[in-house]
């Protein structure tokens, strides 16, 4: 096993509830994740369409409004293991911390996917702080 584990986080000057409303919308990932062009959700299954045109199937594991935690795994065969976790943590009434963790085997996919998640956090912050 070659497990890679990478974490990115960002402070967003917006309430945790507002940010979670976006993050917890499983079908809306493509609206704030650059490089994902579409999402289709069917129950616990989600298929995201990558910018390269390739579909990537996922299983939604946790979508917890109380903890404000969204967790999923990519089920494509190239991944021996994958776990993506997004936590929205209130810092005060007007600011939150969003943590996007990626673990994957093979580990190189953790680095490749996590590059995208970091860009997604930047875009989420931009949208939440300007809208």
């Amino acid at each position: 096993m070659t497990l890679g584990s990478i974490r990115h986080e960002i402070r967003i000057h917006r309430s945790a509830a507002d940010v979670w409303a976006r993050v917890g919308d499983a079908a809306g990932l493509h609206t704030w994740f650059p490089g994902i062009t579409n999402c289709q959700v069917d129950g616990k299954n989600r298929v995201i369409m990558l910018g390269s045109g390739a579909p990537l199937p996922e299983e939604i594991l946790v979508n917890d409004d109380t903890q404000r935690r969204f967790q999923y795994r990519i089920t494509a065969p190239i991944f021996v293991h994958h776990r993506g976790t997004i936590d929205v943590i209130a810092l005060d009434d007007q600011e939150c911390l969003v943590v996007y963790s990626t673990e994957a085997d093979p580990r190189t996919m953790a680095l490749t996917i996590a590059g995208g998640t970091a860009g997604a956090l930047d875009e989420l912050k931009r949208q939440m702080e300007t809208n």
């Binding site: 650059p34 490089g35 994902i36 990558l50 910018g51 390269s52 390739a54 990537l56 190189t108 490749t112 996917i113 590059g115 995208g116 860009g119």
Partner: peptide
């Protein structure tokens, strides 16, 4: 980067 599945 060349490894760019998201085409970012």
């Amino acid at each position: 980067p060349f490894l760019d599945p998201f085409m970012r």
